[in-house]
């Protein structure tokens, strides 16, 4: 099934939950696994949180969330027109954070690990676009794997 949606909302904290819940609702007709849904909503949560905290900081700006579905491939873009990232490669390094009191520097690592592909484009003073892709396999075996203890 092909489908798409665009959400535009202000960079306010409660909208992180709204954004991830909206993406889950958008994907539900495809009958994804619990594990797939959880991966995607976690990645969306990270991307929208980054846009709020790092993109806009103390100011309120606009965040655009786009979801495009082609067959079972979901492409999600989260865009802001905020501060931008001066060194994207550095920002993507695990545990790198510009705000150690607030975050743990795992946002991009989570997006990269939980989705199939992550692309980050940014220009200082113009904003950041995070593009994430994932193929929904719907294979329940994956879910069983997720039920095992990680330890």
């Amino acid at each position: 099934m092909d489908n798409e949606m665009t959400l535009i909302f202000p960079s306010k904290g409660p909208n992180v939950a709204f954004a991830r819940t909206a993406v889950v609702a958008f994907l539900l007709p495809l009958d994804p696994t619990v594990l797939e849904l959880n991966d995607i909503r976690t990645a969306v949560s990270e991307a929208v949180t980054n846009a709020i905290i790092h993109g806009y900081g103390n100011k309120t700006g606009t965040i655009t969330l786009r979801c495009t579905l082609r067959e079972r491939r979901i492409v999600i873009t989260v865009s802001d027109t905020g501060a931008g990232i001066s060194d994207v490669q550095k920002a993507r390094e695990p545990l790198f954070t510009t705000r150690p009191a607030e975050g743990c520097g795992l946002g991009f690592t989570v997006m990269e690990s939980f989705m199939d592909k992550l692309t980050v484009t940014s220009r200082v003073g113009e904003g950041t676009q995070v593009r994430m892709e994932k193929e929904l396999t719907g294979q329940r075996e994956e879910e069983e794997e997720g039920e095992r203890d990680d330890e």
């Binding site: 959880n38 989570v110 939980f114 997720g146 039920e147 990680d150 330890e151």
Partner: peptide, 14 residues
Amino acid sequence: GKSLRRIFALSGLG
């Protein structure tokens, strides 16, 4: 719970 274990594992907090 199950849905939290992946992010726990990823963080290496164990």
